Amino acid sequence: MPSETPQAEVGPTGCPHRSGPHSAKGSLEKGSPEDKEAKEPLWIRPDAPSRCTWQLGRPASESPHHHTAPAKSPKILPDILKKIGDTPMVRINKIGKKFGLKCELLAKCEFFNAGGSVKDRISLRMIEDAERDGTLKPGDTIIEPTSGNTGIGLALAAAVRGYRCIIVMPEKMSSEKVDVLRALGAEIVRTPTNARFDSPESHVGVAWRLKNEIPNSHILDQYRNASNPLAHYDTTADEILQQCDGKLDMLVASVGTGGTITGIARKLKEKCPGCRIIGVDPEGSILAEPEELNQTEQTTYEVEGIGYDFIPTVLDRTVVDKWFKSNDEEAFTFARMLIAQEGLLCGGSAGSTVAVAVKAAQELQEGQRCVVILPDSVRNYMTKFLSDRWMLQKGFLKEEDLTEKKPWWWHLRVQELGLSAPLTVLPTITCGHTIEILREKGFDQAPVVDEAGVILGMVTLGNMLSSLLAGKVQPSDQVGKVIYKQFKQIRLTDTLGRLSHILEMDHFALVV
């Protein structure tokens, strides 16, 4: 994948999101292997301009796509893939009243899908469409860049269908997702969380590099694949309309690839034109409109599966009536509230959605109805927002919020430890010299600072030695090549209790 991002070429006709291997024109390309080798690009942008032909009021008969309808489940399912879809609609009884809503608040519980998330729908649909058009064949390999849930859905379907599955996901995604993927037989590649989507090191860039190296491999490409919004247009939206008897006044959905909100909203605009569509985008993402909503100094966020630093091709923002931004604290607070007060075992993005819903639905009156999409299960986040310690460490809970008995030293300040200034190293000294210094002084790690004293990161003896043994660096290389740029900081005025929580999850903390 090139470091400079080429513009994806656009073909003359058809839909841009065809499933299957992508040609340089962004659509299915038939021909000899030699032709494909000559024409197939190194990668295709996940934010390529959409060429979708959908228009409100256009006859369904003019759609270029294969459409399906929700099917009634048999008493005995032939395999677990038949437990994807037909998820329950559940009334939220307490939270709406707590925040003064007059309307009825309903939750579409997508964590009841077989793999635990709304992404099971698009995973199965992308595979079925690729099999139907002859792209996927027995023994082929599926590769997908994902925040985890699409990966789980694909790995689940691949396990049943017999495909090899490789999932490329950023490091910030939970260990629970990784464990589930491994249990399903998927191979996992992790990428830096802070890598831009168009960087060769991003999950998108690495996935395309693997595709170019592995024979008979395919990126189904949830960011561009029409099967993504079509899955929701054909099934999720129809289920909502049936469950609500066609009567709903507002739908609120958090947005990642945009397939969920695009597919549902398009069908609702056709069948229930008075329904307002509300999009939820986390602070630090750029999906919301108008652009002024996205202006923030924050560039990272903890909530998973929603928000991006690019506009995915499948996201149709014209069908969203209003956007709201959400933050991590309210997302996790509301997710825990949904679990504790409503018994809905949902993930953090569901918290984002409901946090926005109780604001947006203030305009609705008694007798009206708001539906929220709860995308995934708490299963993926047992060591994250479900953990009091994690919430404390991230600053989303305060010590006084917890009532468990603490040891005698818990409320003492870090400054009472009488710490001395640490050994520091410059980023320009060599790895070999740094190892000598650390061994001589008896230290395992040291902060790396520039000549102005600005902290650049941390270097550890173990990481340097393993990097040297693996051949990633040489003793003569500058130590700046092996620094940890993500590390926890703590102030002298913070409590030892807070430091204790940090050290339970990290090997060190830097006192500043």
Rank of each mutant, 00 (worst) to 15 (best):
A157E: 06
G85R: 06
N93V: 04
S23I: 12
I240K: 01
A38I: 04
Q7R: 02
A24P: 12
L28K: 07
V206A: 08
L184H: 05
A114L: 06
E110S: 05
A265I: 02
H65I: 04
M89S: 01
P12Q: 10
T191F: 01
A183N: 04
E29Q: 14
I219G: 02
D120H: 06
E40G: 15
R182V: 05
K269F: 02
K39G: 04
A231L: 03
K39D: 12
R224Y: 02
S61C: 14
D129R: 04
I95T: 08
T87C: 03
C15Y: 11
C109M: 08
R266P: 03
T193L: 09
F112S: 02
V189G: 07
G258T: 01
T257R: 10
A24D: 08
N149Q: 02
A114T: 11
S117D: 04
G100A: 10
E131C: 02
I188W: 00
A69S: 03
T236L: 06
H17Y: 14
A265Q: 05
E176Q: 07
A226Y: 09
A24V: 15
T13V: 09
L184C: 07
H203N: 09
C244N: 00
E270A: 07
R45H: 11
R266H: 08
R91D: 08
W54H: 06
P200L: 11
M89Q: 02
L210K: 08
V178S: 05
C103D: 01
P170R: 01
A48F: 09
F99W: 14
C109A: 11
S147W: 00
T257I: 02
V255C: 12
G96R: 15
T235F: 15
Y163H: 02
S27Y: 08
I142K: 02
P41R: 05
L136Q: 06
L42A: 10
M173E: 02
E104H: 06
L230R: 06
R121V: 00
R125E: 09
P229G: 04
P74K: 12
W43V: 13
A157W: 07
L77N: 07
Y223T: 01
P273M: 14
P64A: 09
K271G: 06
W43F: 15
P64T: 02
E34Y: 10
I80A: 04
G96C: 15
K172G: 02
C275T: 04
Q243G: 02
S174Q: 03
Q55R: 15
K108V: 03
T87N: 08
A60N: 11
K98E: 13
Y163G: 00
G205R: 12
P70E: 10
L105T: 06
T146K: 04
P6I: 04
S254T: 07
K75G: 14
I264G: 03
A158N: 02
P273Q: 08
I240E: 01
M126N: 02
A107H: 06
G258L: 00
I44R: 15
I127A: 10
K177V: 02
R196N: 11
G246Q: 08
E213V: 11
L268H: 03
K98C: 05
E213P: 06
E34R: 03
I152K: 00
S19P: 15
Y223A: 01
T13K: 09
H218S: 03
G185Y: 00
L56A: 10
P49A: 10
L56T: 10
K94C: 13
P78S: 15
L154R: 00
P46S: 02
E29H: 12
T191D: 04
T235Q: 12
L210I: 07
N212D: 12
N93T: 05
A157G: 14
A207R: 00
M89I: 10
A8G: 08
V90I: 04
R161S: 14
E171A: 08
L124Q: 12
V168W: 02
R266G: 04
I80F: 09
A157P: 07
S32G: 06
S50I: 05
E187F: 06
D133P: 10
D238R: 12
P200C: 03
S23V: 03
P215F: 14
S199C: 10
A158F: 00
M126E: 06
R182S: 07
K72M: 05
I240C: 00
A71S: 14
G20W: 09
V178I: 07
A71K: 11
